[in-house]
Computed example of a mutant assay.
Amino acid sequence: MSHVEISVITVSYNNLQILIDCIESIYKFNDIGNKLEVIVVDNSPESNIFDYIQQKYTEVKIVKNDNNGFGEANNVGVTFAKGKYLLFLNPDTILIEPIFKFAIDKFEQDKELGGFGVKLVDLKYNRNTSFQYIDKCGFIDNQIIKLCRKLDLFIDGKMCIIGADIFMNKEVFYDCGMFDENIFMYSEEADLARRIKCLKKKMAYFKEKSIIHLEGKTVSNKQIDLERRMESQKYYCGKYGLNFKKMINSQIRYNYFKMIIYKVTHSKKYGICKNNINLMKEFCKEK
Rank of each mutant, 00 (worst) to 15 (best):
D152C: 07
I211H: 09
Y85P: 05
L192F: 14
N221S: 12
F88P: 05
N67Q: 00
E97A: 09
K269G: 02
D42I: 10
S25I: 07
K234H: 13
L36Y: 09
A103L: 05
K269E: 15
K207S: 11
K269P: 01
E112I: 00
R149K: 14
N15I: 10
C198S: 13
E46K: 15
G157S: 03
I162N: 12
I252L: 06
I224G: 04
N65A: 09
L113F: 07
Q55N: 14
F257L: 15
K281H: 06
K111M: 01
L279Y: 04
I96T: 11
F100L: 05
E46I: 06
E188M: 01
T10S: 15
I9F: 07
F29I: 07
K268Q: 09
D66N: 09
K28L: 14
D105Q: 12
F184W: 08
I49N: 14
N276I: 02
N15C: 05
V172H: 04
I104S: 01
S250G: 02
G138D: 15
K101H: 02
Y85F: 13
A103Q: 05
K35A: 12
M259N: 13
E231G: 00
I252H: 10
E171Y: 09
L87T: 03
L151H: 05
I196P: 06
D135Q: 07
K150H: 10
L214C: 02
F102T: 02
I23R: 10
G238L: 08
N90P: 00
K106Q: 13
Y174Q: 08
K281Q: 14
D175C: 03
G271F: 12
T265G: 00
K202C: 01
G77Y: 02
I62M: 07
D110H: 01
C273H: 04
I162Y: 08
